[in-house]
Design a binder for these strands. Structure first.
Length: 476
RNA sequence: GGCGGCGUAGCCAAGUGGUUAAGGCGGAGGUCUGCAAAACCUCUAUUCAGCGGUUCGAAUCCGCUCGCCGCCUCCA
């Protein structure tokens, strides 16, 4: 069974057939770097991170490009506000973006091109469009002439007449048609600009993605993604530019993720600030955030709920408990496989369910269902091992499978789990109390043992008595 | 006005024509434990916003009603 992807262009699920067998070339619209990234950016980045990981899991050689828009009105405004250069703003927020993404375990792109570093490519593309009669120059501005590209509107399901009727575009006498969009904007005083055949200026927003994706992935490639808000006009314009110039189909599969909503709360600046990735990661385990965000299908809107992340964290603990147990067993040396009590068959079944779910348009909620069923089965196996019925080797193999599929979702990555730094003095005190309690229990002085446990509880320490001794952790 | 989406258990969320409506969180009972914790087991939607219709059969298709949301302008 092969991978099927919902293609925004056709509005249906289609079998994924890359242009080059065994390879998947994908371009994802990144961010305009003028501010700290928020939960919505996190969702989008996460969705495409998982798609990329899954393609790799399926054996494709993935070429993944994600751009930075680093020239734009918002950047210029911000720079003016702060009295610094646009470049300083964009560099700052590129660094912030990368830090935020790393904190979420989102892998960096193979290429992360910046618009300002591809001005020549954009100019060349605009020249091709002019040469083909699809664009025109007016006083140093260049516009794409939408009426010359009849399929404009196909991606967003609009027709040219409706666009004209509903056009709320600012009146601009220089355009031949209100629907036309800027490829190149002539320089205004105090704004960054580059020389061009039409005079100094800067690129329009849409041209960068066409130019950069074609440069790194070719004139036709497999997957182009972004938030659903980009369908119109951004991606519509990208298609017009790319196909207008090359005469070839631009992208085979368009993938768009749904939004994160905040209920009736306005997307006000103050609220927006509380929902930055930075803020959330400070309060929550990043893998719990991944688990939470992946619990809703990527095309569905997601109503943000802070408490949901805490719930996800509790679920994640179950998975981590298995990893910890496997680590403990593995530390004792390679165990013999031992009886598997049907474990292998069931592991295989769950893995296959995982794959079927992911093959169906990256259905991560369903895939997580398979993962949690697998985890429950492994917990049983864990009990079997400690009771001497099941083989430790079989258990370890099973946990290995769990890790393999979890990591496709970026879970159980092995990054600093949840152990916060504990200062040595506190740690020594905790361990001595734990030891004293062990002694008390051995002496069957349970009153004393319970007293010590209560004392540890005051210190925020949770105990777990196992057949191999007592483990403890600091409550989060 | 145009285009699109959503309404499934206490909460979150899959499922989109046919054996028991996934999974997570929460809750109840049980096993284990000196007691806990963790884990596991059992239970927690005769029912899928409402009303009609199509069908041998619908949460799933069609129509209407109610409620909510996104895009059409910068936006992940």
């Amino acid at each position: 069974m092969g991978l099927r992807i919902f293609n925004s262009l056709t509005r249906r699920k289609e079998e994924f057939t890359p242009l080059t067998p065994g390879e998947a070339r994908m371009y994802v619209c990144g961010v305009t770097v003028y501010d700290i990234s928020h939960i919505g950016h996190a969702r989008s980045a996460l969705v495409f991170d998982v798609i990329r990981r899954y393609l790799r899991f399926k054996g494709y050689r993935v070429q993944f490009v994600k751009n930075f828009t680093d020239v734009d009105d918002k950047i210029i405004n911000r720079a003016a506000q702060e009295g610094v250069s646009s470049q300083e703003i964009s560099e700052r927020y590129i660094a912030e973006y990368r830090a935020d993404m790393a904190s979420l375990g989102v892998l960096p792109g193979d290429v992360e091109p910046k618009a300002t570093e591809h001005i020549p490519q954009m100019i060349a593309l605009i020249q091709r469009l002019i040469a083909k009669g699809l664009a025109y120059v007016v006083h140093g501005d260049v516009y794409f002439e939408v009426r010359r590209f009849p399929t404009y509107g196909r991606l967003s399901g609009k027709n040219l007449e409706d666009l004209l009727a509903g056009a709320r575009v600012e009146v601009d006498d220089r355009k031949r048609d209100p629907r036309d969009f800027a490829l190149w904007k002539s320089a205004k005083p105090g704004e960054p600009s580059w020389p061009s055949p039409w005079g100094a200026g800067r690129p329009g927003w849409h041209i960068e993605c066409s130019a950069m994706s074609m440069q790194y992935l070719g004139e036709s490639f497999d997957i182009h993604g972004g938030g659903e808000d980009l369908i119109f006009p951004h991606h519509e314009c990208e298609i017009a530019q790319a196909e207008g110039a090359s005469g070839k189909p631009f992208v085979r599969y368009w993938i768009h993720n749904g939004f994160v909503n905040f209920g009736d709360e306005k997307m006000s600046k103050s609220l927006g600030n509380t929902l930055t990735i930075r803020d959330l990661v400070a309060r929550h385990d990043p893998e719990a955030m991944r688990l939470y965000l992946l619990g809703t299908h990527y095309r569905h809107p997601l109503e943000f709920g802070d408490e949901r992340i805490g719930e996800a964290a509790r679920a994640l603990e179950r998975l981590r408990g298995l990893r910890a147990e496997a680590d403990r067993l593995a530390a004792k040396g390679t165990p013999p496989p031992g009886p598997d009590l049907g474990l292998f068959d069931e592991v295989t079944q769950h893995r296959s369910r995982f794959e079927t779910a992911m093959d169906d348009d990256f259905n991560t909620p369903q895939a997580l269902g398979a993962i949690f069923d697998l985890a429950r089965r492994l917990q049983t196996a864990r009990t079997d091992v400690s009771d001497g019925r099941g083989g430790a080797g079989a258990f370890l193999v099973g946990v290995g499978e769990l890790m393999t599929v979890s990591r496709v979702l970026g879970l159980l990555e092995g990054r600093a789990p949840d152990a916060p730094e504990i200062d040595p003095a506190r740690k020594a005190r905790i361990e001595s109390l734990v030891w004293l309690r062990q002694e008390a229990r051995r002496a069957r002085d349970f009153a004393e043992a319970d007293r010590l446990r209560a004392e540890l509880d005051q210190l925020g320490v949770v105990l777990e008595d196992t057949r191999d001794g007592t483990t403890w952790k600091v409550r989060r």
